[in-house]
């Protein structure tokens, strides 16, 4: 027995000195590979696999233009989920989680910087050529003090928020926001919004044309494989959540453990997802960190089962082994 085993266990399992039977390990593996291959092919033929098309900023801005405008305005004002998130995207605090003094989210700082006003609104608008009104609006916005910019943004965001709240509560939307379903254009009546209406109208057009998708993927070089910016932009809006709810993927629906359609998903995440369904995790601001801590402890215990009194002794007490080794015990009984 190993020293570890001697240290932690009363294990007195003896080496086997009994009989042996012929056993072809290589043949067994080959047969198993063939059987599993046939099984996987059969399942693929019978059930295929899900492949729901990804969402785009263009799709979002066409399907939910008011929500897109509202979210974009929050990006400009620095009040969106991403803008206030914290590490690794910025120095916000809204999504920083902690357990007592344990704050690992802050350990590595801002590794993927996102400045929502510039990255999501101002820089993409600069890519639109030949629009003098937009140029003037951008110049006015950037020349204004922070306080004024904030006031303009809030004045523009207010009617959009009122519209979305009314729609959500099935009330008559305010007349300050007019949606033209034939063109998916939105007209927002707002006083004291300065150049923001001009900027946001152009941004909506850019997004609906698909230009914003391209603008957010443009990096300093030709190739690109990092979708952090557009994904976080969309995650701040409602399109992804709306689709996820239709596909029973929300956190309250056991979340990402599920798969789109009726396909089995990551069912092995059931215990991880389970904690999000119960208190105190369900309503905790620090739910992710707490669940990870719980799962880390449980995983460690799982790995250390051989050294855990009680847990390691249970198999001896609950005689499932009698079923597994029934042939062996039967031969002993005969003997």
């Amino acid at each position: 027995m190993s020293r570890l085993g001697k240290l932690f266990s009363r294990d007195d399992t003896q080496p086997w000195h009994g009989a042996y039977a012929p056993y072809d390990l290589v043949k067994e593996l080959c047969v198993a590979v063939v059987v599993v291959t046939l099984l996987a092919v059969a399942l693929a033929v019978l059930f295929s696999s899900p492949d729901e098309k990804p969402s785009t900023l263009g799709q979002w801005s066409r399907e939910l233009p008011v929500n897109f405008l509202g979210t974009a305005t929050k990006q400009l004002n620095g009040t969106s989920g991403t803008a206030e998130y914290g590490p690794p995207y910025n120095n916000g605090t809204a999504s920083v989680q902690h357990a007592a003094f344990f704050r690992p989210q802050e350990w590595f700082g801002v590794s993927h910087p996102i400045d929502t006003a510039n990255d999501y609104v101002i820089d993409p608008l600069r890519t639109i050529p030949g629009d003098t009104a937009l140029r003037a609006a951008l110049a006015e916005y950037e020349a204004a003090p922070e306080k004024t910019r904030k006031a303009w943004g809030e004045a523009y965001a207010k009617p959009l928020e009122e519209y979305e709240t009314a729609v959500e509560e099935n009330k008559t939307p305010p007349h300050t926001v007019k949606l033209d379903p034939s063109t998916d254009s939105v007209s927002v009546t707002s006083s004291g919004a300065g150049p923001v209406p001009t900027m946001m109208t152009r941004l909506l057009s850019l997004a609906q044309s698909g230009g914003l998708d391209g603008a957010l993927l443009t990096s300093h070089q030709f190739y690109q494989t990092d979708y952090t910016k557009p994904l976080l932009y969309m995650a701040d809006g409602e399109l992804l959540a709306k689709r996820a709810e239709e596909q029973h993927l929300l956190g309250t629906q056991w979340g990402m453990m599920n798969e789109t359609g009726s396909f089995p998903g990551q069912s092995w995440l059931w215990l991880y997802t389970f904690w999000y369904q119960i208190e105190p995790f369900k309503s905790s601001h620090n739910a992710d960190l707490l669940v990870i801590i719980v799962m880390s402890v449980l995983s460690l215990l799982f790995v250390c089962v051989p050294f855990l009194p009680g847990v390691r002794d249970l198999p001896r007490g609950i005689p499932i082994h009698r079923l597994i080794w029934r042939e062996h015990y039967r031969s002993q009984r005969r003997a």
Binding site: P54, P104, Q105, L231, M234, Q247, L249, T260, I292
Partner: peptide, 17 residues
């Protein structure tokens, strides 16, 4: 695909935390 978009934007919070 959409599944990847949803899972990545949801699971990122646990990784970040």
């Amino acid at each position: 695909n959409f599944d990847a978009q949803w899972i990545s934007t949801q699971a990122k919070d646990a990784m970040n935390s």
